[in-house]
C-alpha cells in the first residue's frame, strides 16, 4: 500500500528519454516550422482577404452547428453505450465498433460512404431526390453532415467515460425519492457528467473544424457554401503557398486556443 502510494522519482532509463524526445520532436517540429515559415509581414493582409473571411465564417458556422447536433445525438448514444456494459458480449461489441469505426476510418472513406448513402444516386439520396427534389451533396448541409459523421465518436466516448466513472448512488437516491427516469437523467446524471460533455463538445468542435477528407469528397468545394478553411488551405497550396501557410496558422491558432481553454481535468484520459 505504502509502496504504491509513493510517487515514482529518479531518472528514466536513457532509451525512454531518447524515445520521448524523438516523439516530442515528431509532434512539435512541423508546427514550429509552420510558425517560423509564416509570412508574418503579410499575415494581416492575407487573413483579411474576403476569401479567407468567408472560409472562416463557414468553418465556424458549420462546426458550431455540427457540435450542437453531436451534443443532441451523442449524449443519448453515450448513455446507451455506457448502459451496454451489462449487455451480452456480441451486441455490446457491435455497438462499440459502430461508434469507433468513424474514429479510425480515413475521412475520405467516410465521404465516399456518405455519397453512396446520400448522393443523388445513393441508397437514400436517390429517393430523396425523386420524392422531395432534395439533393444533399454540394450544400452547406452536406458539410455539417460530414462533420457530424467524423466528430460524433469524440463526444460519445468523452461522455461515456464520464458516465461510467460517475457515482450511480445519487441517481438511485433520486429514483427512490420518486423522480422519473427522465428527471433523473436531466437533473442528476447530466450535471454530474457536465465536464465530460464540455470536453467532448470541445473535441468535437475542433475535429469538425479540421474536417477535410469527408467534406471535399461529399460536399465538394465552393467558396461561401462548402469551401471550409482546411479546403481553402489545401487549394491555396496549389497557387499561393504563403496564403496556405497563413490559413494553416489560423487553424493551428484556433486549435491551440480551444485546447488552452480546456482545464486539465477535461482533457482526454483525465475524464476516463
Amino acid at each position: 500500500m505504502a509502496r504504491t502510494a509513493t510517487p515514482v522519482t529518479g531518472r528514466l532509463a536513457w532509451p525512454i528519454v531518447a524515445g520521448a524526445v524523438l516523439a516530442l520532436a515528431v509532434l512539435v517540429l512541423p508546427l514550429l516550422a509552420l510558425v517560423v515559415r509564416a509570412p508574418w509581414a503579410d499575415l494581416p493582409a492575407l487573413l483579411a482577404s474576403s476569401a479567407v473571411l468567408e472560409a472562416l465564417a463557414l468553418s465556424f458556422g458549420t462546426a458550431i452547428l455540427a457540435t450542437a447536433i453531436c451534443l443532441v445525438l451523442g449524449i443519448p448514444l453515450a448513455a446507451l453505450v455506457a448502459r451496454a456494459e451489462s449487455w451480452a458480449t456480441l451486441p455490446r461489441r457491435l455497438l462499440r465498433a459502430a461508434v469507433t469505426v468513424p474514429l479510425v476510418l480515413p475521412p475520405v472513406v467516410g465521404g465516399i460512404a456518405l455519397l453512396t448513402l446520400l448522393g443523388r444516386r445513393g441508397v437514400i439520396g436517390e429517393w430523396l431526390d425523386r420524392v422531395f427534389g432534395v439533393t444533399i451533396p454540394f450544400t452547406t448541409g452536406a458539410v455539417v453532415i460530414a462533420q457530424v459523421f467524423v466528430a460524433l465518436p469524440f463526444l460519445v466516448f468523452a461522455v461515456e467515460g464520464a458516465l461510467r466513472s460517475s457515482d450511480r448512488r445519487t441517481e438511485l437516491a433520486a429514483a427512490t425519492l420518486g423522480a422519473s427516469r427522465w428527471q433523473v437523467f436531466r437533473h442528476v446524471t447530466l450535471p454530474i457528467v457536465a465536464p465530460g460533455v464540455a470536453a467532448g463538445g470541445v473535441l468535437c468542435f475542433t475535429r469538425a473544424l479540421g474536417e477535410f477528407g469527408a467534406t471535399i469528397t461529399f460536399a465538394g468545394s465552393l467558396p461561401g457554401t462548402t469551401r471550409t478553411l482546411p479546403i481553402a488551405s489545401y487549394l491555396a497550396m496549389q497557387t499561393d503557398p504563403d496564403e496556405a501557410v497563413a490559413l494553416a496558422l489560423l487553424l493551428l491558432a484556433v486549435s491551440v486556443v480551444v485546447l488552452l481553454t480546456l482545464r486539465d481535468r477535461w482533457l482526454p484520459g483525465a475524464t476516463a
Partner: peptide, 21 residues
Amino acid sequence: APDTLESDVKAVLAKVSLGEV
C-alpha cells in the same frame, strides 16, 4: 453557376461519372 470547384480535373470527372452533377 458551379456547385463545386474541384482541385483537379479527375475529381470533376468523378462527380460526373457518379451522377452527382
